[in-house]
Design a protein around this nucleic acid. Sequence first.
DNA 1: AATATCTATCATTTTATATCAAATTAGAGC
DNA 2: GCTCTAATTTGATATAAAATGATAGATATT
Lengths: 255, 255
Amino acid sequence: MQAEERQNRISDYLNKVEYASLEELAKHVDVSVSTVRRDLDLLEAGGTVRRTHGGARITEPDSDEFIFSHRDTHQLEEKEAMGRLCSEIVEPGQSIIMDAGTTVFHAARHLDVHKKPQIITNSLPIANHFASSNLVEVVVSGGVVYPRLGVLVGPAAVRAMEEMHADIAIMSAAGITSEGITNSHGLLIDIQHAMIRAAGKVVFCIDHTKFNRKSLNRLCGLDEVHTLITDAQAPAKLIAQIKQAGVNVQVAKVE
Amino acid sequence: MQAEERQNRISDYLNKVEYASLEELAKHVDVSVSTVRRDLDLLEAGGTVRRTHGGARITEPDSDEFIFSHRDTHQLEEKEAMGRLCSEIVEPGQSIIMDAGTTVFHAARHLDVHKKPQIITNSLPIANHFASSNLVEVVVSGGVVYPRLGVLVGPAAVRAMEEMHADIAIMSAAGITSEGITNSHGLLIDIQHAMIRAAGKVVFCIDHTKFNRKSLNRLCGLDEVHTLITDAQAPAKLIAQIKQAGVNVQVAKVE
DNA sequence: AATATCTATCATTTTATATCAAATTAGAGC
DNA sequence: GCTCTAATTTGATATAAAATGATAGATATT
């Protein structure tokens, strides 16, 4: 049997039984345990399978195989740091609107579930992330799934957000200048507007690469932003201007 | 047994009995009390379980009816077969409402994406499953996430379904008798009603264990069902009665 | 105070990692 | 097509890491 074929069979088998021990897999494809180990390493690198002690399990759709993770490996450290900082802003029991975007997703990952937040989101990855915990109440807007990103868009999503109210909105965007914040996705703009209107406090997570950049659609002015979270590489000059506009700017430090 | 699987079994068991002593758990998964202790520490960190003196209890008990587990390998084959059969009913380009439930989830997994269906669902697992493909358009109802199952429930979900229209609804339920179909979860009943009203054709996927069983809430009469998909172990007598009521019954054969 | 449960520790067992020789496969030259 | 060599893959093994079960002393419950 060829290696690839064997890995497919392992993968299929795991898809069926969800979990299997190494011995079980070795017997099933009739090779040594060593080979199964190596195959599983490859499969795990591919993301379809997760190793455990003594066995392996398929990565459920429960976890986030949504594009993000590999795409943004460059600024991963910064985004992680921003996510940590962002999670500190949240008070126990607050209701939080979470935008769809990689930076916000990192914030979600760092959010302490023991603060029992109420999450309102149009992002499937974020909804999935919290779905396993019953400490967190997650409200999902309706809408059409935007492929690959797992964002809910369309009029239903806008309407859902218009009916909400929350303590905080944690947002992301594609560009920020002294004139305000812009975003590229036309489908998202309306939803984000509704999110901003629905929240008592608006927090933007924007990494340094978005500074001094303008994107297609204007999202909001700096006067509508309460807090901006960014990383240490953001240009000091623009940060000063933003502060002068009355925004509470917080810079995340990479450990 | 490996750590991971053991913890799942502990978790499942606690979901059933709500509370169990350490000895009881140790006997159930056949390991020492020390190991159960360590497992419970991990589970508690995950938030699903709370330790007590001498035992543990589930933090938020849910009706075991809905635990989303394709782990019981007994009926796995049957459910897979039902899923395959179910997917054959779908015509290219049709819009399909998909209920939340393990049988329907299997149907989703077997659905041919090249038929370019339009999926409407309140199930996060199903939405995730199709989110990576841009052949399939997925519409998600809004709502509150029911923990662990990833089902969207509540008034927003009901309203969303009431506004939909689809060619087919693929449904599941907890019980079927000659008098009709029943389901256990009050939160889902309203949504399922809306689904049935919204669909031109109603298909139920119900395995043999649900036959001659009545659950809390009446969902619909047999006259509202167009097709019933079940497995070969379903009692012939009740199948005959259901056929007589005008339902197109299809029995899935395990390969 | 008596009993049960918890925490911490340690020997034992199980699993993982790294390494190497044998087996298999791929490619070059005839 | 065949043979030989180089590269890769495989299975086995020694060593490292971890999980497990048992136990003793500390702590909590009655």
